[in-house]
Nucleic acid binder design. Structure first.
Ligand SMILES: Nc1ccn([C@H]2C[C@H](O)[C@@H](COP(=O)(O)OP(=O)(O)OP(=O)(O)O)O2)c(=O)n1
Length: 623
DNA sequence: AGTAAAACCTAA
DNA sequence: TAAGTTAGGTTTTACT
């Protein structure tokens, strides 16, 4: 069967091979079996006749733990692993093929644990049928996924724009793209790129400003002004590049006039484009123009699937452009230049400050406006403005006007844009807010949440659902009593064990190898337990581990009360519902409801009658 | 009991 | 060519 499959591959002669986790599992497994069975021709999978496909397992011992990865050579064919694509392009709580297919396409397969495969094969027609269906589905779903997310189209575009092979887009980072573009532009301009020796890394340099938020619940419309592609546009406007930098000792070497040199807010010198146009600005112009095209197509597209594809393309190009800046600040990278990255962020800090001041000075009673505009928050390249307008139209009009006026203060292509109005707007903290997002005056586009629990993957879905529902009730329905009643009912349900366990599953990523952790973590402890129970399915670095917190003696730390949700179901283990109330639900609820409902919230939510009936449990773990 | 540090994830 | 960047909130563990 294996030989026939390999022959099938050779006859079909595909450019691209896909599957789910093929690089880490399927190919190594198949090649291993073929070797064990002494199959002569199986490993001839590539397009070069005499090159045999082998698995190279590379283990690098670094100061910061082990780095393990497998490399499989299949000449002339791209290994386009959908597991890698999905992890890169979608932010999900779980990346099992089953969950991914379900979330993205609404399709599921029956899971068959590997331990029963032999039994199914040795059973009867029915069990073999079950196995066959499972295998077919396993092969079919990755293809359907590829067809659905259309990542190949975007990746081919990205490969063309940045000049890297397709496979690099899956197996490598942003740096290769920047280097490839630099090489391309350097060659045609007649430069060599120096080889950079890795030196000692200094401290992080200073980044962007986050304005102190004036927290609270705003019933007035809040206009948002935002510099488009801030860092790339700074680099283009001021011609920041390796090739335009004047080191302090070079400033006087070239007989340059004052008007031919830019001094950045961080005190670095660069020549203007009139003297010599930088490479980085050229690269950025190309990336931004590709992004602009993608955005234009997105605007005209009506099909929701294609919209998502184009949005993905636009986003990937934006990250690549921002990574050109990031590359210059990457001290463990191929060509760091902190003069560039430090100048970029310094310009950014100056710009957000100036923007805030201009808005507040110009849109004031003193200048003839109805009220004093107030910048209530801003992050890096945006300001949230309370023009104190009572309606959307006025807020939008003032926002557009301000964006246009302030843009004129900056060099092209720097541009401040009016993006949207939040109405109402709940500002909880830096990087934490929610609001109804309006781009037009008739209906809100969506409820937008930043940083709060509804967009985070490290809490249980009960918290997500409750916070989401509360926000809807408050921001959309404006029903404060209904919100309180809903929260009380939910807490009562939780305490009486009426919440489904699937809503209580928390997932966290395994970010280090065991042994590199200095503090015990619930999901890490569970991962170790799972590895013991089922070594064949041991969680690996980068996997997300789902867990629930079960009952234990008082003061038992969470990492000792952690258990596999399936194990809990199978063994009827009691869940620690008060953990979910006290450690998962209560604080997020107070943060959301506090600004809207006032100080009374805590007593209403956490100490009302609805908290009195609790289901008693008997079995316990821990001390 | 109070606080520093670790860990995670997100905004930009 | 191994690895874009910094800022920041929140929860949990470890330590005093
Ligand atoms: N992954 C990211 C995102 C952002 N930034 C930096 C560079 C950006 O210029 C700035 C502002 O980020 P935004 O998310 O607001 O995005 P842009 O301004 O780049 O693009 P847009 O045109 O969508 O506003 O923050 C970054 O370095 N890396």
């Amino acid at each position: 069967m294996l030989e026939a499959w390999a022959e099938f591959v050779r006859q079909l002669d595909p450019d691209i091979l896909t599957g789910y986790n093929i690089n880490n599992f399927d190919f190594p497994y198949l090649l291993d079996r073929a070797k064990y069975l002494k199959l002569k021709n199986f490993a001839r999978l590539g397009r070069i006749k005499d090159i045999i496909t082998v698995v190279k397992e590379i283990i690098q011992q670094t100061k910061f733990g082990k780095r393990k990865f497998k490399n499989i050579n299949i000449e002339g064919r791209v290994q386009y692993d959908m597991h890698v694509v999905i992890k890169r392009d979608f932010k999900l709580r779980s990346y099992t093929l089953n969950n991914v297919s379900n979330e993205i396409m609404g399709e599921q397969k029956e899971d068959v644990h590997y331990s029963i495969i032999t039994d199914l094969q040795n059973g009867d027609d029915q069990t073999r049928r079950r196995l066959a269906v499972y295998c077919l589905k396993d092969a079919e779903l990755p293809l359907k996924l590829l067809d659905h997310v259309k990542s190949l189209t975007n990746d081919i575009e990205m490969a063309r724009v940045t000049g890297v092979p397709l496979s690099s887009l899956l197996n490598k980072g942003e740096q290769v793209k920047v280097v490839a573009q630099l090489l391309r532009h350097a060659q045609s301009a007649g430069y060599f790129i120096p080889v950079h020796e890795y030196g000692p890394t200094t401290d992080q340099y200073e980044g962007a400003t986050v304005l102190e938020p004036k927290t609270g619940y705003y019933k007035d419309p809040i206009a948002t002004l935002d510099f488009s592609s801030l860092y790339p546009s700074i680099m283009i406007a001021h011609n920041l590049c390796y090739t335009t930098l004047l080191k302090p000792n070079e400033v006087n070497n070239f007989n340059l006039g004052k008007d031919e040199i830019t001094i950045t807010p961080s005190g670095n010198h660069f020549v203007k484009a009139s003297v010599r146009k930088g490479l980085l600005p050229q690269i950025l112009e190309q990336l931004l123009s590709a992004r602009k095209k993608a955005k234009a197509m997105l605007k005209d597209e009506t099909d929701s699937v294609y919209k998502a594809v184009l949005n993905g393309r636009q986003l990937a190009l934006k990250i690549s452009a921002n990574s050109v800046y990031g590359f210059t600040g990457a001290q463990v990278g191929k060509l760091p230049c902190l003069e560039i990255s430090g100048s970029v962020t310094a310009y950014g800090r100056e710009m957000i400050e100036l923007t805030r001041n201009l808005v507040e000075q110009e849109y004031s009673i003193e200048k003839g406006y109805a009220s004093n505009a107030e910048v209530i928050y801003g992050d890096t390249d945006s300001v949230m403005v309370n023009f104190k307008a009572k309606d959307l139209e006025t807020s939008m009009k003032l926002g557009k006007e301000a964006a246009e006026a302030i843009s004129k203060k900056f060099i092209s292509p720097i541009k401040l844009e009016f993006e949207k109005v939040y109405w109402p707007y709940l500002l909880i903290n830096k990087k934490r807010y929610a609001g109804l997002y309006y781009t037009g005056t008739d209906k809100y586009d969506k409820m937008d949440c930043k940083g709060i629990e509804t967009v985070r993957r490290d809490n249980c879905t009960l918290v997500v659902d409750v916070i989401n529902t509360c926000l809807r009730k408050l921001l959309i329905e404006k029903d404060e009593n209904g919100t309180v009643a809903y929260v009380q009912q939910t807490i009562s349900d939780l305490l009486q064990n009426n919440v489904d366990i699937s809503q209580l599953v928390i997932t966290k990523e395994l970010t280090k190898n065991d042994g590199d952790y200095t503090a015990k973590q619930a999901h890490v402890e569970l991962a170790k337990k799972l590895a013991k129970r089922d070594p064949g399915n041991a969680p690996k670095l980068g996997d997300r581990i789902p867990y629930v917190i079960i009952c234990g003696a008082k003061n038992t730390p969470a990492f000792q009360k952690v258990e596999d949700p399936i194990y809990v179901l199978e063994n009827n283990i009691p869940i620690d519902v008060s953990y979910y109330l006290e450690n998962q639900l209560s604080k997020p609820l107070l943060r959301i409801l506090g600004p809207v409902l006032g100080d009374k919230v805590e007593s209403i939510i956490l100490r009302g009658e609805h908290t009195l009936t609790r289901t008693k449990v008997t079995s316990k773990v821990g001390a």
